[in-house]
Design a protein around this nucleic acid. Structure first.
Lengths: 155, 155
DNA sequence: ATCGCTGCAAATGCTTTGCAAGTAC
DNA sequence: GTACTTGCAAAGCATTTGCAGCGAT
């Protein structure tokens, strides 16, 4: 559930950018907040919010997603299955760039798990030294076979 | 350039799967092989091969890409810019699952660099221990600002 | 009252598919 | 000769956009 404090913060953020506070925007953020770890597609967000707010249009969902991404309130993940997925950003203050949280996908059942581990700093500093690149964010995806799928490949 | 040995290996692979050796398939593989590190889109592959083989159709490019991916001869990368990109797989023997090679994208100029570093084994064993997951592959993307872009964010 | 937002429908853009003709084996 | 392949055009699907009406401030 989204706390009132968070909701107020969101309203402030919108106003600060000259954007308006609408039911649609609040409900979309809320749907993502209440489904942390579910990696919702735009379609799924649409269905969820539509249940509470029947008039909703798909285009609004997509436009709201853009707004929320610009405010750094949500992140997009792509599992190459034809549709993008979205999830609440951890540090929801709309400032931090590093969200140290990544994904683990089972190649058999397709379930997506998460992990918080962060052994990336070492790698990043090394790359920065070697290439002159200033790294501000990273994304890690692991693929394998989950416990229920027996850790064994198909076929 | 694609070596004759590699070309023969490719032909064997196709035959072993009951697939036919066609000019289109060889030319697409060759285009990707001669453009290692360029992360070509399907459209770009199409243009490249079409120069040598005018009759080519876009659908064939997409179908060939599928075949090459099933043979593990190429990998797909997605930079969320609306089109998938493809590159030759390193261990082109069509067996290995681990390709320890990842991407570094500049958030200002959009250029994509590569790095070979591999500090992932530690992370992977730890996750395996913790979750019971059997990890067979990983994908790392780093985002930042390249040397030419001054390591400084825009605006 | 203003200017942003929304819903709808149409458009876009990448990718896939159906099908008849062509080609490898 | 028998599949498998190809090119073309049409279809599919996720996402974006144009626009007139609606709603927040």
């Amino acid at each position: 559930m989204i706390s009132n404090t968070e909701k107020e913060k969101f309203k402030e953020l919108l106003k600060a950018k000259g954007l308006k506070v609408t039911n649609q925007r609040i409900l979309v953020l809320q749907a993502l907040s209440e489904n942390e770890g579910k990696h919702l597609t735009a379609e799924e967000i649409f269905e969820l919010v539509k249940a509470d707010y029947p008039g909703l249009g798909m285009a609004t969902v997509y436009r709201t997603i853009l707004v929320l991404m610009e405010l750094h309130l949500i992140d997009r993940i792509n599992f190459d299955d034809g549709q993008a997925r979205y999830e609440i950003a951890r540090a929801s203050d709309g400032s931090a760039h590093h969200h140290h949280h990544h994904h683990l996908k089972c190649l058999k059942c397709g379930k997506v798990f998460e992990f918080e581990e962060d052994m990336m700093e070492g790698l990043e500093t090394e790359i920065e030294k070697k290439t002159g690149f200033k790294i501000v964010d990273h994304e890690v995806k692991l693929y394998g076979y989950c416990r229920e799928c027996g850790g064994l490949p198909i076929e």
